[in-house]
Structures are given as structure tokens and as C-alpha cells.
Write a protein that binds this DNA or RNA. Structure first.
Lengths: 153, 153
DNA sequence: CATGCTTATATGTCGTAACATATAATGTAA
DNA sequence: TTACATTATATGTTACGACATATAAGCATG
């Protein structure tokens, strides 16, 4: 049971090409299982990530700019993601006192509760992923680092 | 230069958690560099993938259903992706003779030319990624397979 | 053949990424 | 202080994934 069976492709152009396809496929597999975890709680992955950043700041607020900085995929859509969290009552938005251009975003108590519940499930989820030893994990991380290192892209 | 520096996070909950974040980050890094390659040619990644499937069938057509089957991320949006390829003159759509519900999609000669050009660039791109040995690539693929194996997700 | 089920495709909605532009507040330099 | 650039956020557009529904054609069973 490897990538070959999973995507029903026997031959690959090279070992590198196979490894790259495997990274992309494994990423999809990971993301999908997280989506399945968030969905019953009415959250998307980006919404969960924003909530987590806000909890990291709690009880201090975060500006939209701070959210953009911290979101791994730095998009300029933080504003709309906060819109949706706000309409679900998971965050509050107030005009920033110091800078009237900026907006202070706070996680609400409902947001904190939801996050707590989800994070317990995430904990279980990760402990279900026990197929790799510590050494395996380190090797995997090192190889990924190496793949990205000093290549001319 | 590893994932720690890249995402500016020193501590991770576990080696597994670090490896997972590394997979997601590396995936983004790979996807982005492919997007940069396709963009000058006016193609998105899904559009490129559909074109490649069509070339695999050439000179036979593919139905929308076949495209859905082969697209790694099996969405039901093949129809709209073909719309966009058609409006760029890269594919042709004809009603299927045998089954009037189905549609035969063909890659056009312009589509074939474009794909040829892009694939030369992809070749160069992959050969720029020469930081991993054959053995490294195999180990990496094996570890990813192992991560996905018989876990209870 | 008529009825109903299934299949192939298309279309509509929502949330998102990526990108461009708009607006208002702030900072700066003459 | 006025004019201009910059910053923070919001909004608009396009393409997409995921999902639901619509429509038309084929199939199957009576």
C-alpha cells in the first residue's frame, strides 16, 4: 500500500517525481482529515487557524494585519474570514482606540469554548497517527527541509 | 535552514506535529513554484492537469466523467474548467455520438503546443530540484506511505 | 410502450486564494 | 499647514473545491 496503489499509477518519471507527487497527495490526505474534523463544528480550516491565532493573543486583541502576518498562507482575505467568524459569534470586532484605521479583533468566550473542544479532538486525531517513530518523523522533516534547501527556485 | 526558520516557530508539540507542518509547508512551496511556472502561460494548475489528461487520450476524446475520474482532486467542476480551456481555444467540445448525454473533449493543436512548451519548463524545474539523492527520494516516499498506512483515520 | 431509476453534464451557492482597487486615517516633508 | 505618500482595512473580480440541485438522455422493468 503506497502512493502507486493510492493514485493507481504504476510508473513515475523518476524517484523525485514520485516523491513530489507523494508529498502533494499526502498533504491532501492530511488536509481532508482535518476538514472532516472541523466541519461538524461549522468551521473551515482558515477559520480555525484565525481562531487559534486569536486565542494566542487572548485577552489582547489582534489587528487584521497581525492575522495576515501569522496566517501561513498570507492572503489579504483575513477581513472576510473575520466577517464569517463574527457572524457566528466566535469573535468580536472593535475599532482600535490608538489607530482609527485599524480594527481590534477578539476571540469571544464562545470561540474559546469551541476551540477547546476542537483541540481535544485534534489531540486524539494526532495520536491516531502513530505509524511513524520519533526517528522517522525527524528523518521525514529533514528530507523535506533538504528538498527545499538551496535549490534554484 | 529548516522548517523552524521558514515559519518562524521554534517549538513544536512533537516531532510528528513538526513533520506534519513541514509536509503542509513543503506542499505549499511546491505548488507555488508550479503556479509561477504556469501563470505566464495563462494556465492555472487544474487547467494544466486537465490538459495533460487530454493529451494522454489524444487523439481520442475524453468525456467529462473521465476527467473527473483522473483528476487527483476529484471535484465535479471539470465542466467549468473545460469551459475556460475552451474559451482559450486549447480544447474542443463536441457532443458524443454514441451517448447524447456525454460530451467529447479533445485537446486542440494549440493546446498540444502549449503543453509541450510548459513541459520543457517543468523538466528544467525538476532538474533544479536536485538536492535529494535517489535514495533520499525513496526514503521520503516510503515515510509518507508509512504515515498514511493503517492509521485509524 | 410507459414509468421510474440512473447517468452525464451543467448550473447555482458558499468559502476561499490571489489579485486589484477603493477609502479612510496616518505620517511626512516642504 | 497643505500636499503627497503610506498604511489598515474593505471590497470587487476570477478561478477553484465542495456541495446541492436541475435537466436531459439512457436504461430497465413491468
Amino acid at each position: 500500500m503506497g502512493i502507486s496503489e493510492d493514485i493507481k499509477q504504476e510508473k513515475f518519471k523518476s524517484e523525485l517525481s514520485k516523491a513530489i507527487i507523494n508529498i502533494i497527495y499526502t498533504n491532501g490526505w492530511l488536509q481532508q482529515s482535518q476538514v472532516n474534523l472541523f466541519k461538524p463544528h461549522g468551521l473551515t480550516t482558515p477559520q480555525y487557524n484565525v481562531l487559534r491565532i486569536l486565542r494566542g493573543q487572548h485577552p489582547k486583541p489582534a489587528t487584521i494585519n497581525l492575522l495576515i502576518d501569522r496566517m501561513l498562507d498570507k492572503s489579504s482575505n483575513a477581513s472576510r474570514i473575520v466577517d464569517r467568524l463574527e457572524s457566528k459569534g466566535l469573535v468580536d470586532r472593535k475599532q482600535c482606540s490608538g489607530d482609527r484605521r485599524a480594527v481590534d479583533v477578539f476571540i469571544s468566550s464562545r470561540g474559546l469554548e469551541l476551540l477547546k473542544k476542537i483541540d481535544e479532538e485534534l489531540e486524539e486525531w494526532e495520536s491516531g497517527l502513530n505509524t511513524l517513530s520519533e526517528t522517522d518523523c525527524k528523518t521525514l522533516s529533514d528530507l523535506l527541509d533538504k528538498l527545499r534547501s538551496k535549490s534554484q527556485l
